[in-house]
Design a protein around this nucleic acid. Structure first.
Length: 436
DNA sequence: TCTGGGGTCCTAGGACCC
DNA sequence: TCTGGGGTCCTAGGACCC
């Protein structure tokens, strides 16, 4: 008898209810709030550097535009069908996300913000009928208050509520809310779900599983637990148990502190000179230090990396990274950039066309908890950084910056079709109104 | 011409120790 | 001739997520 059958026999009913709320085509929906004429029209949103398509409205999906497709490859369909294109505007999306999450928090005490457009809610204590009505109420409220359409999937484990959510999105009959609580409904849903659509089964594992004729989530639940453990490790085993209704991944109600923090960008055009790489690494180092200061963290060590364009097979390739220890845990931009510049000199090789560089900080800890003997200048460092941050917040980022960041930044990323920051920048809003 | 960015967790294997 | 073995810790790289 398969493991799932045993479980189903032993536990005929389960009361745990986890809801996954997922914003539909989130970035595209954000753009539509401020541009309602685009409702019903095809939209795509591009990744940084206007490289790939990372969000498509339903209409754009229907045109056959693929997720993750390079913009230049899809340009033909886009132009022909008059698809509206946006560069990504993360300050706008982040702000809308916050409004969605604040609204959600009114509906449950247990909320885990999982990503910019998803949250898990603990919804125990509802009868199924009431649960469905409650979820519809959540949907209506988010639409009314924030203007974002969402889908809701509810089941007994996180992995199953992901599956419920997918069904709610795909199948109109659910009207945006799919609840999977009975074993019958769960099994039917598992049969309808391709193995590659299971949360935790990525590209490589789905190819591996398909070799064994495991094509659906249901097929996967019929496997032997020991075989999964042996071939797919503890992660595979957790996914298996979750699909069988055994909750292994708990709600994380308190967001944990970051362990690493990275800033990296592709260049708008290939970079060859070390001067330009130094400028970029200075900018990324500054930005990443700013980011950890916002969260009250300090870093123990860091690494920097560079790479050439691996899509371009004709050119010779080079990639390298170097790990650098900081003298003591710090979030001081000047110290971090100084280290980064030492690193770039070591890994730079002449004669390559570089595509991307980045700075990563590791060993992050709360600034308050780390105070060593060596950082005798902590007070003055903190007060300089604090002043810097306040000026840049007030007068715009990079108002005060390190000389090593450069001035014209010819390498900096492309962002040709960006919408105004309607909710976070006053001058953008004025500009948007004038252009109407 | 043009192919994103930022995270987490797990694991295999090397270094080191007794 | 014959060259231990087991435990722990660390790290780089891989796989996954959105």
């Amino acid at each position: 008898m398969s493991y799932i059958k045993q479980l189903q026999n032993n536990h005929p009913s389960q009361n745990n209810s986890i809801a996954l709320i997922d914003c539909n085509n989130f970035y595209a929906s954000c753009e539509r709030i401020f541009n309602p004429r685009l409702i019903g029209k095809p939209i795509v949103v591009l990744s940084n550097n206007d490289g790939c398509i990372i969000t498509r409205s339903a209409e754009a999906k229907e045109l056959g535009i693929k997720m993750g497709e390079p913009y230049f490859k899809a340009k033909k369909i886009i132009d022909k069908n008059n698809v509206k294109v946006f560069s990504s505007n993360y300050s706008l999306y982040g702000d809308i996300s916050q409004r969605v999450m604040e609204t959600l928090a009114r509906f449950a005490s247990d909320v885990e913000i999982y990503s910019i457009d998803e949250a898990f809610l603990g919804l125990n204590g509802f009868e199924n009928y009431e649960l469905s009505k409650y979820c519809q109420y959540i949907r209506r409220t988010i639409k009314q208050w924030v203007g974002i359409p969402v889908s809701i999937g509810v089941s007994t484990t996180k992995t199953l509520s992901k599956i419920a959510n997918n069904l709610a999105k795909k199948n109109k009959k659910y009207d945006g809310v799919c609840i999977l609580k009975s074993w019958f409904d769960i099994n039917e849903a598992l049969k309808l779900t391709s193995i590659e659509d299971v949360w935790g089964i990525g590209r490589r594992l789905s190819v591996f599983l398909k070799k064994y004729k495991i094509n659906t989530a249901y097929d996967f639940t019929q496997l032997d637990k020991g075989w999964i453990r042996k071939n797919m490790g503890v992660v595979g085993e957790k996914t298996f148990l979750e699909l069988c209704g055994v909750s292994c991944i708990k709600l994380e109600l308190i967001p944990s502190d970051k362990k690493s923090c990275c800033v990296s960008r592709s260049f708008s055009k290939p970079v060859e000179k070390i001067d330009d790489l130094e400028e970029s690494v200075s900018s990324y180092g500054t930005r990443v230090a700013e980011k950890i200061r916002e969260e009250g963290l300090v870093a123990e060590s860091m690494s920097i990396f560079v790479l050439t364009n691996y899509f371009n097979r004709k050119e010779k390739q080079y990639s390298n990274s170097i790990k650098l220890q900081l003298p003591y845990p710090t979030n001081n931009s000047i110290k971090i950039v100084k280290r980064a510049l030492e690193g770039i000199k070591k890994i730079y090789r002449q004669g390559y066309r570089y595509k991307k560089a980045g700075v990563i900080l590791y060993g992050l800890t709360k600034a308050k908890q780390t105070r060593g003997l060596l950082d005798y200048d902590r007070e003055s460092s903190d007060s300089i950084m604090n002043t810097l941050d306040r000026i840049n917040e007030r007068y715009g980022s990079s108002t005060i910056r390190l000389a090593s960041e450069g001035v014209d930044k010819s390498w900096s990323m492309r962002r040709e079709s960006v919408s105004p920051c309607y909710t976070t920048r006053f001058d953008d809003l004025v500009e948007a109104k004038l252009s109407l």
